[in-house]
Design a binder for these strands. Structure first.
Ligand code: MN
Ligand code: MN
Ligand code: MN
Ligand code: MN
Lengths: 217, 217
DNA sequence: ACCTTTTTTTAGTTTTGTCTAAAAATATAA
DNA sequence: TTATATTTTTAGACAAAACTAAAAAAAGGT
């Protein structure tokens, strides 16, 4: 698998998770920031390599081999992100781009030893589950802040958007993984949410609310 | 700098160190395990990018920018090798191929934090000096076992050949970095050397002797 | 100096991954 | 159902990095 093929596999895996079904050429091109014709080319190549099934005009569906490889790349990405934060003083908004490079390093021993070195972490710095050596990982149900109820308390356990912009916004408002707060008010007009954390009140927009994963306290 | 350009820069740097002068196209092709025509293509490209000076039919000489970049890649290679051995339970014969991949990861913060995490090591697992952030590194004079004198004692401080084959040979004979021994006899007929280490005597061939770096005790 | 061998460069091709433009298939909507 | 819009695929081109084959330059030997 080349670097490019791995990135496409990861993108297809991601889109399959979101939609629950096959992945359209346009959606894939959009996700990969490229043209539909390029996506078609790669889908055909990956179909040749038995990584997915492609029915022309009907989209692509990962094979077991393709899904397994995608999960391996995701495992590497999340382990490296964890390493960068835990050992190399990176902030959670600085790790993604470097992990995008590191996830393509080829060495089974490297990644398994890294896993051991980090003491087999279950979640990465953004709250995403880390697949183990066999590709298994936790999928606890997470709600977003848009789904939370007034006067109830929650803990932040993940982010849907892991862009540097969003993460820095959270930092500047003292919200991180593990942060607990109470939902004070949900504004019907613009779907903004007022929360109380550490005795401070804060209003967050809908764009923020829908990207915060919570667990009920 | 692309991965390929970086590998060529490293090779040219290496050959310049060995010969002390400019690098011929053939030597470069040999080092890179490729054809002379490919070497010419890349030398021209690197000359365009001001990484080296190329006089047709006269070979290539690194510019300051080229040498500086080569040293940066070498710094990364050696820091990663150190990380693999110190933290991830790799043996010294297992690190090279993985480091060849890791040395191309682009992130200044990554490598400087790795350096700090490893507590600014001065030498890699093969005894090669690690350039610091500014590209400076120790160049202590090293002799090879072929140059050692009878009835004198030495300590192994490096290897010239870092192939897995050679390193495994050393392992199986209990020779590693820091190992001390006495030179018992130098055989004029075939340049083999008999040494005494930990009360055991061992005869090593000339091929072995010329790849072992020593310091006088 | 002249011929031969070796080294280096040039010219043209291949593969991978991208692109634009155009054609074909599918979806939508009057 | 038929026209229109959208999506997807095909066709052809390009850049990077490799290759082979051939031409050109330099080095060696007599
Ligand atoms: Mn990430
Ligand atoms: Mn992550
Ligand atoms: Mn090495
Ligand atoms: Mn080394």
């Amino acid at each position: 698998m080349t670097l490019s093929e791995e990135n496409y596999l990861k993108a297809i895996y991601h889109l399959e998770q979101l939609s629950g079904s096959g992945v359209s050429t346009n959606a894939l091109a959009e996700e990969m920031q490229t043209k539909a014709s390029s996506a078609t080319d790669m889908v055909k190549k990956l179909a040749d390599k038995q990584m997915l099934i492609h029915v022309p005009y009907q989209g692509a569906t990962l094979s077991d081999a393709g899904r397994s490889h995608a999960v391996k790349v995701i495992r590497k990405h999340r382990l490296w992100e964890t390493f960068l934060v835990e050992k190399l003083n990176f902030k959670w908004d600085e790790v993604h781009d470097v992990a995008e490079q590191l996830e393509h390093i080829k060495s089974e021993k490297l990644i398994d030893e890294l896993d051991r070195f980090l003491e087999f972490p279950k979640y990465d710095p953004h709250g995403d589950p880390i697949p183990d050596k066999n590709g298994k990982f936790n999928t606890i149900e997470k709600i977003t802040l848009t789904q939370a109820l007034e006067n109830k308390s929650y803990r932040c356990i993940g982010v849907k958007d892991d862009s540097s912009q969003f993460l820095k916004y959270l930092d500047s408002n003292q919200i991180g993984l593990g942060t607990s707060f109470e939902v004070v008010h949900k504004e019907p007009f613009d779907q903004s949410v007022k929360i109380k954390l550490k005795d401070k009140e804060l209003v967050v927009s809908q764009s923020v609310a829908k990207n915060l994963f919570l667990e009920t306290l």
